[in-house]
């Protein structure tokens, strides 16, 4: 393993993040605060309790997931698309590094940024609602795994994208609906039976459910299934990336 290279990529990417740290935080913190005001305070005051917790508290895990997933994808996809776009990728391709090292550097940095933002949002949430985390270690574990797996997915999108429109398209067309329909703002059990069945094909449901379990100890699906789903998703993304570097798809002519 060329650990020096992994570290170099990671540090280089993180430096970019720290240069624009204020921008990086303002937008997610602002939008989350708005969600709390709208859904937590305005609408939430008319909803009694969901699965034994106040509605404002109930949406916290979903909101964190929403931000962390979109941040992971946009950070990672942009992180690798940018060198491709401006041509600096030649250096990665001609360096003594393998795909795993490149992925660890870029995906590691993208996931770290998303994790930072997730933590900031959690801190913001404490300002608005009275919150207790029943399984803190599981909570952190779910958060980290989500950052990594969706950063891997973002990395694939960044390599696939041929222009900036495509770079935005996948998050917009696929990820946002999946996340919103993944139970961020409601419990799956609140849906009509048909939609409950359809929801089980949405991978995000397992994530949010597992993450919510770590907060409140109650979940839509069992925790084991949640863990299996996220592990399978991570493995799938990794194999796609391995194939990309093996064949040079969209990166080596």
């Amino acid at each position: 393993m060329n650990w020096t290279a992994v570290k170099s990529i990671y540090v280089f990417e993180m430096a970019r993040f720290f240069r624009t740290i204020a921008q990086s935080f303002i937008s997610p913190v602002l939008s989350t605060s708005l969600y709390f005001v709208v859904f937590g305070a305005a609408i939430g005051s008319r909803i009694q309790e969901v699965e034994g917790v106040t509605y404002a508290a109930f949406i916290v895990p979903g909101l964190i997931m929403l931000s962390v997933i979109t941040q992971s994808i946009s950070n990672a996809s942009f992180g690798i698309y940018f060198p491709k776009f401006i041509g600096t990728i030649f250096e990665l391709l001609s360096a003594p590094v393998n795909f795993l090292e490149i992925v660890m550097g870029y995906v590691g940095a993208a996931a770290t940024k998303a994790l930072f933002i997730g933590v900031i949002i959690l801190a913001t949430a404490f300002l608005f609602v009275d919150l207790q985390i029943q399984h803190p270690f599981a909570m952190v574990g779910f958060l980290v795994l989500t950052c990594i797996s969706f950063s891997l997915m973002g990395f694939i999108i960044g390599i696939w994208a041929g222009n900036f429109e495509q770079l935005q398209l996948v998050p917009l067309l696929i990820v946002t609906p999946l996340v919103f329909l993944g139970g961020s703002f409601y419990s799956i059990s609140m849906l009509p039976p048909v939609w409950q069945i359809i929801s089980h094909f949405n991978p995000v449901v397992y994530l949010i459910s597992g993450f919510r379990w770590s907060f409140f100890g109650a979940a839509d699906v069992s925790i084991g299934v949640s863990l299996f789903a996220i592990a399978a998703f991570t493995a799938l993304c990794l194999s796609v990336i391995w194939w990309i570097f093996k064949t040079g798809w969209r990166i080596r002519q």
Partner: peptide, 23 residues
């Protein structure tokens, strides 16, 4: 082709190259 990141700083990008090659 001149392929460089416009917002990077000179020393930083040179240092990065060295690290990328595992030195």
């Amino acid at each position: 082709e001149i392929n460089l990141e416009p917002f990077e700083r000179v020393k930083n990008t040179v240092r990065f190259s060295r690290g990328l090659f595992g030195k």
